[in-house]
Nucleic acid binder design. Structure first.
Length: 556
RNA sequence: UGGGGUGUCGCCAAGCGGUAAGGCAUUGGACUCUGACUCCAACAUCCGUAGGUUCGAAUCCUACCACCCCAGCCA
C-alpha cells in the first residue's frame, strides 16, 4: 500500500503504521446506529472515513451498528443509504452488524467466560452502578465476580435461551474495579433485551454492548483504522482489551479519535434535534433551518459544498467551533458554478417605459461561469417591475442604481432613464415613468453611454407570483452554542429565534415555471434559491439557500 | 481530589530546533450588463503563562493556568 503525503494527523498515524508494518492497508468504516438522522457532524466523520481510505487506495464499509433494538428502526437505516448516495460515496459493502456478527460475538463472549475474563453478574442495575465507585474513588467488586466459570457459562447460555428477563443478569468483563479509567471497571458487555429487533426480529434476546461489539465488528470486517470522535478516547483501552482477549490475530484494527465539528449558533445532537422536531418547532427533520443532511439538502446546499467545507476545516483533536460563514463560503462557491440565473423581483416597484409600445424578447445567460449552460428567453415590455430598493429619491453616496433623472441598465435589455416619479394619494411612490434608450440594447450597444448600475427586472407580461421562504438561524444570534444552552437548562422557547421562517411572495420570470424540486437557481443580485418539495402546480415555493454577498456600504 | 485530551491571528489550521503557510471573516482598491464572481493589497515581532536548555525554541525540559470528555444494563 502506498504511503501518501499526510495532510492531517490521522494520515501521519496511518503512514507510521504502514511503514512499521502494523498495518498493511487502509480499510475504514462508518458505523451509524440507525436511530436518527445524520447531521453535518456525521458528514465530517463520513467524509474523512471515505476520503482517507480513498487516498490510500483502500475502501470504506457502511455498517449499521444496530446492537440496541430499543432505539433502532429500519427507516433510519434506509435514510442513511439515500443520504450517503447523495453525498456521493459508495461503500464497499453495506453491513448490518446484527445480522453479520451477533453469532460470532456470542462465541467470543463464551470464550471470554471460559478464559476467566468475564462473568455473569446478578446484581441489580442500581447495585452495579453504585459499586462502580466515582471518578476519584475506586469501585468495589461484585460478589459474583469470582463465581465458577461453569456457572457463568451456564447462565449465559440460559440468557441466550431466554430464561432471564431484562435486567436480571448481565455479562461483565473482568478487568479492574479500581481502574482509574471508569470504562475499565468491569464493564457490562452483554445484556438481556426482550425487544423485537428491526432486522433480526426475535432471534436474539441478548445484545452486546458497544464496547464489546465495536472492536469485534471492526476486526471481523477487516477494518484497519477505526476513526471516531474524541468521546471514545477513554474507551480505547477497552477496545484494545477486547481485541487482545478475543481477537488475537495480527493486524488488529486501530482506533484513532478526532474532534467533532461544531458550528456557531447551530444545534447538533440527535436527542436535541429530536426535541425540536417533536415539539413542532420546525417542519420536520428536513427543515431547511436544521443542519441535518436532509435539511441542508432541502435548503439547497450541495454535497460538494458541504464536503469542501469539511475538508477545508480539517481534522484535529482540538475542540473547534466554526462560524457558519465558512460553510456558506463553500456553498456559494459551488452554487456560483452550477446555479441557473434567473430574474426575480422580491419587492416590486412598477415602471412604465413611456417610449415603448411593443414588447421585445431578450436573452439571459443561464450561467456566465459555464459556457455550456446556454441561455433562456425573457421579456422587456412597456410595463415592468424593478426592485423597490433599486430606486431612491434620496440616494446615499455611491448609489449607482436608479434615481430621478438618472439612468440604469436593465439586465439583458436596455438602459433606461427615470423621467418622472408618480405618487399616489398617500404620498407614496406609485410607479416610475422612464424612457428606454433604443441604441443601448444589451449585447449591441454602441452608444458609448456609460452606466454604472445594472439592475434586474421582470416584465408585467412575463411573470408569475411565487412563494419565497426566507430563513434566519433557528436560534437567537447571541446563542452561539444552542446545544450547550439546552444542556444547561434553557427552554427551547428561550433560545429560539421568533421569526426564523418568513414567507413572502415575489414576481418571477416565467422561465421559472419549469423548475423541478431541488433545482437550484441564482436569483440575480439576490441570492441562491431552490425549489421546495412543498411546491404545487399553482404555487411554486423557493427556499432561500443563501444570499449573495453584498459589499455595498451606503454610509460612505 | 482520579483518568483521558486540548491550548498558534476574531474563527478554523499548517508548523515536528533554524527564526510564524493557507482558508474563512474583516478592511482598502481594481474589474464588472449580477455592488456577485474574479483580481490585487492589508491583516500574529508572536505561538495559554512562567521559568529553563540551546548560538538559536511555537517546536525540547519543568511548573503552573484554562477549557473539553468519562461514573448507561446508550452508541
Amino acid at each position: 500500500m502506498k504511503i501518501i503525503e499526510p495532510s492531517n494527523f490521522i494520515e501521519e498515524e496511518i503512514n507510521k503504521d504502514l511503514e512499521n508494518g502494523k498495518a498493511k492497508e487502509v480499510i475504514t468504516r462508518f458505523p451509524p446506529e440507525p436511530s436518527g438522522y445524520w447531521h453535518i457532524g456525521h458528514c465530517k466523520a463520513i467524509t474523512f472515513n471515505f476520503e482517507i481510505a480513498k487516498k490510500y487506495g483502500g475502501y470504506t464499509y457502511l455498517r449499521m451498528d444496530d446492537t440496541n433494538p430499543t432505539k433502532e428502526d429500519g427507516d433510519f437505516a434506509d435514510s442513511y443509504l439515500a443520504d450517503l448516495k447523495w453525498l456521493g460515496y459508495q461503500p464497499k459493502k453495506l453491513i448490518y452488524a446484527s445480522e453479520a456478527y451477533f453469532e460470532d460475538m456470542y462465541h467470543f463472549a463464551e470464550n471470554l467466560i471460559k478464559s476467566g475474563d468475564a462473568y455473569i453478574d446478578e446484581q441489580s442495575q442500581e447495585e452495579v452502578s453504585k459499586s462502580r465507585g466515582t471518578l476519584t474513588t475506586p469501585g468495589t467488586e461484585s460478589p459474583y465476580r469470582n463465581r465458577p466459570v461453569e456457572e457463568s457459562l451456564q447462565i449465559f447460555r440460559d440468557m441466550r435461551a431466554g430464561k432471564y428477563d431484562d435486567g436480571q443478569v448481565v455479562l461483565r468483563a473482568k478487568i479492574d474495579m479500581a481502574h482509574p479509567n471508569m470504562n475499565m471497571r468491569d464493564p457490562v458487555i452483554y445484556r438481556v433485551q426482550k425487544v423485537k429487533h428491526y432486522r433480526t426480529g426475535n432471534k436474539w434476546c441478548i445484545y452486546p454492548m458497544y464496547d464489546f461489539a465495536h472492536p469485534l465488528e471492526d476486526a471481523l470486517e477487516g477494518v484497519t483504522f477505526s476513526l471516531c470522535d474524541m468521546s471514545f478516547e477513554d474507551h480505547r483501552p477497552l477496545y484494545n482489551w477486547v481485541l487482545e482477549k478475543c481477537w488475537k490475530k495480527p493486524y488488529p484494527p486501530r482506533q484513532i479519535e478526532f474532534a467533532r465539528l461544531n458550528l456557531e449558533n447551530v444545534l447538533l445532537g440527535k436527542r436535541f434535534l429530536r426535541r425540536v422536531v417533536n415539539e413542532k418547532k420546525v417542519m420536520g427533520w428536513d427543515d431547511p433551518r436544521l443542519f441535518t443532511l436532509v435539511g441542508m439538502r432541502r435548503r439547497g446546499f450541495t454535497a460538494k459544498g458541504i464536503k469542501d467545507f469539511i475538508l477545508s476545516a480539517g481534522v484535529t483533536k482540538a475542540d473547534a467551533t466554526v462560524p457558519q460563514s465558512a460553510l456558506n463560503f463553500h456553498i456559494r462557491n459551488d452554487l456560483n458554478n452550477i446555479a441557473t440565473r434567473a430574474m426575480v423581483v422580491l419587492d416590486p416597484l412598477k415602471v412604465v417605459i413611456t417610449n415603448l409600445d411593443k414588447s421585445e424578447e431578450i436573452e439571459i445567460e443561464n450561467n456566465p461561469n459555464d459556457e455550456n449552460a446556454g441561455s433562456h428567453k425573457s421579456l422587456f415590455s412597456r410595463e415592468i417591475f424593478i426592485e423597490k430598493e433599486d430606486f431612491s429619491l434620496n440616494p446615499p453616496p455611491k448609489y449607482n442604481r436608479l434615481v430621478e433623472g438618472g439612468i440604469v441598465r436593465l439586465k439583458g435589455a436596455y438602459i433606461i432613464r427615470c423621467d418622472k416619479v408618480v405618487f399616489n394619494e398617500n404620498g407614496e411612490i406609485d410607479h416610475l415613468e422612464c424612457e428606454y434608450l433604443p441604441e443601448t440594447k444589451s449585447g449591441q450597444d454602441n452608444s458609448g453611454i456609460k452606466c454604472k448600475g445594472t439592475i434586474h427586472f421582470v416584465s408585467a407580461e412575463n411573470y408569475f407570483p411565487v412563494t419565497i421562504r426566507e430563513f434566519k438561524n433557528l436560534f437567537k444570534e447571541e446563542i452561539t452554542d444552542p446545544t450547550k444552552a439546552l444542556i444547561e437548562g434553557a427552554s427551547l422557547d428561550d433560545i429560539l429565534e421568533p421569526n426564523s421562517l418568513v414567507n413572502r411572495t415575489a414576481y418571477a420570470e416565467n422561465f421559472l415555471k419549469t423548475a423541478k424540486v431541488e433545482d437550484r437557481f441564482q436569483f440575480m443580485r439576490k441570492g441562491y434559491y431552490c425549489l421546495d418539495k412543498d411546491s404545487t402546480a399553482d404555487n411554486l415555493i423557493f427556499n432561500l439557500t443563501i444570499n449573495l454577498k453584498d459589499s455595498f456600504k451606503p454610509t460612505k
